[in-house]
Amino acid sequence: MGETLLEVKNIVTEFRTADGQLPAVRDVSFSLQKGETLCIVGESGCGKSITSLSVIGLLPSNGKITNGEVLYEGSPIHNLSPEKMRQIRGNKISMIFQEPMTALNPVLTIGFQLREPLMLHHKLSKGEATKQGIELLKQVGIPYPEKRMNQYPHELSGGMRQRVMIAIALSCNPGLLIADEPTTALDVTIQAQILDLINDLKSKLNMGVMMITHDMGVVAEVADRVMVMYAGKKVEEGDVEEIFNNPKHPYTIGLLNSVPNVDDPDFELEPIPGSLPSLSEQITGCRFHARCKFATDKCRSHEPAVFQVSDTHKVSCWLEEEGVH
C-alpha cells in the first residue's frame, strides 16, 4: 500500500449515437494504490464497465474520452497513440472478463493463448513461453498444467477457464488488473475460490485490482475500497467498512438493503423503486432524485456537491449537508 498506481481525474466518456453525443461516464475521479482492491459497484448500465474500458483504452469505436485524464504511475495514458497503448495493455494493465465460456478462443489450445502475451510483450521464444505458461497455470492452481496446455477451452470447466483467463491476464506481471464481474458466470463455491485466488495473487504480485461488480457479497469479500456509481456518476466512495457500516447515499443504502441477509430472519428486502434512467434522459439536479425517497426540492434542481464524511469517505448527496442521517 501507499504508492499511487492509477489516478483517474474527472473523466467524461461520451458515445456518439443517433441521438447525439451521450455521456456514459460523467466526471468521475478515483485513484488506486498498489496492492489495493477497489470495487466499482452499481447496477447494470451505470457506467462501471465503460469506466474500466476507458482506463484500458478499449472503448467501442463510437466511444471517446472527451475530458479528464487517466494517469498510470503518474504518467498520462488516455492520450497515448494506439501503438503505445497496445504495449501497455496486457503488460502493465490487464483485464479479465465476465464470461470465461466465451473469453477464450474455442479453436486455439490453452497453451497457444497463454503463450500469446508472453511472446508479444516479453519476446520469449515458443519453448520458453511454454515453460512459463506451465508455471503460470500452476500458480493459478490448475492441476496437470502440462496436459492442460494442449487442451482446448471446451475441455475445461467454467472455473478452470476463469483460472486460465487469470493466468493469461497475469502472465506479464501487470501492475493493474481490471476484473469485469469475474465471478458472475460462476457458481458460488467456484466464485469463492476465484476471489481467493485473485486476492492471493494480488498480495503476491503487489498489484492493484479494479473489480467491477454488482454483487455486494463479492464486495464484502475482496474490497479495500468501494466506489458506488449511479447513471454515470460516482455517488459515494469509501473504505469497505465505511460503506457497509455507515452508508450515506440513499442509493448505496438501497443496494445494501436489496441483498438478502440470512442471519437476520426479520430482515426485509427493500428494492429500489424505478429503473436506471437512459443515457439520453436529461435530469436536472441529482441523477438519483426520481428514485430517492428522501428527495427534496434542492435535489431536483441542484446537482449535489461532494461532501467529505471522513478522510476516505466521500458522498455526493444533499442530505449530507442537512445532516439528515
Partner: peptide, 8 residues
C-alpha cells in the same frame, strides 16, 4: 476483446 486487452 480479451486478446485486445492483452495488447495484441
Amino acid at each position: 476483446m480479451a486478446m485486445k486487452s492483452l495488447g495484441a
